[in-house]
């Protein structure tokens, strides 16, 4: 339960992309994906250029391409949907490999797949090259409401604790012949989730009491990404 959890999607490194300030990376990501989304999908020549930009960033960050590709499975359900569009869309039909497909539907499917893929790749690049604490510092610099960033930091701080708690519960359910995913065992799963809620809520109450004991008055002292837990305690312990 150290203070800084390395996240599952983070790929440790020291490249220029890793070192770039987080708020600039977030702004670049949002601007880039917005540009991709706003580009008309018929401008076929532009998309390889976008792809080159993303792949170039991944290479510059020295993150293996295969590492990114393997984590892109998250968009598979969406690609399946995109593949269905030519079948259900209206407009003039065309024959492809003996199937009657809608022409505007094919163009739309291309647009959905390419824009979704670029978005996922760009987001993965941010996640791979930026530590969660740096992202939080970046969001704070981007003037997100401090309370929102605090809630996010507490969520990220205890995410592994709570999910591991759930993992152990599910393991013990399975070891007793209970399959949590099956609707037949939903009552048992729901009781476990109820217990997990109570445990999480009570942990929140204890965290709050521990903060009060260290002089918390409603705002957290801001620590930088390199700041250690000791400075947090010292800063809040001086009774402001």
């Amino acid at each position: 339960m150290g203070a800084a959890h390395g996240h599952r999607l983070h790929h440790h490194g020291h490249s220029a992309v890793h070192r770039a300030p987080a708020h600039l990376k977030i702004l670049t990501l949002v601007g880039f994906v917005l540009l991709v989304v706003a580009t008309p999908r018929e401008w076929y020549a532009v998309f390889p250029a976008y792809l080159a930009v993303v792949v170039g960033t991944v290479v510059a960050a020295r993150v293996p391409l295969g590492w990114v590709l393997r984590r892109m499975v998250i968009e598979v359900p969406f690609l399946v949907f995109a593949a269905l569009v030519p079948f259900v869309a209206h407009g003039p039909r065309t024959e492809v490999l003996g199937l009657s497909l809608s022409e505007p539907g094919l163009v739309a499917a291309w647009g959905l797949a390419v824009k979704g893929t670029l978005g996922v790749m760009a987001s993965l690049t941010l996640a791979a090259t930026t530590e969660p604490t740096e992202v939080l510092t970046g969001l704070r610099r981007l003037r997100l409401p401090p309370l929102l960033v605090e809630i996010m930091s507490f969520m990220l701080r205890y995410l592994d604790v709570v999910t591991a708690d759930l993992g152990r519960t599910l393991t013990s359910m399975r070891s007793r012949g209970c399959e949590p995913r099956s609707p037949r065992h939903w009552p048992a799963l729901a009781r476990s989730l109820g217990a997990l809620f109570i445990r999480s809520y009570e942990r929140g109450e204890r965290v709050h009491l521990a903060m009060l004991a260290r002089g918390y008055t409603g705002t957290l002292p801001v620590t930088t990404a390199t700041g250690t837990a000791t400075t947090t305690v010292r800063a809040s312990g001086t009774g402001r």
Partner: peptide, 24 residues
């Protein structure tokens, strides 16, 4: 009140954990 940050953070972690269970 001033318990918002830690409590909402922990409840968010709970919601995230609950969403992780996939049902076929």
């Amino acid at each position: 009140d001033d318990r918002t940050a830690p409590l909402a953070g922990l409840v968010a972690a709970f919601v995230f954990a609950a969403q992780m269970i996939n049902f076929p």
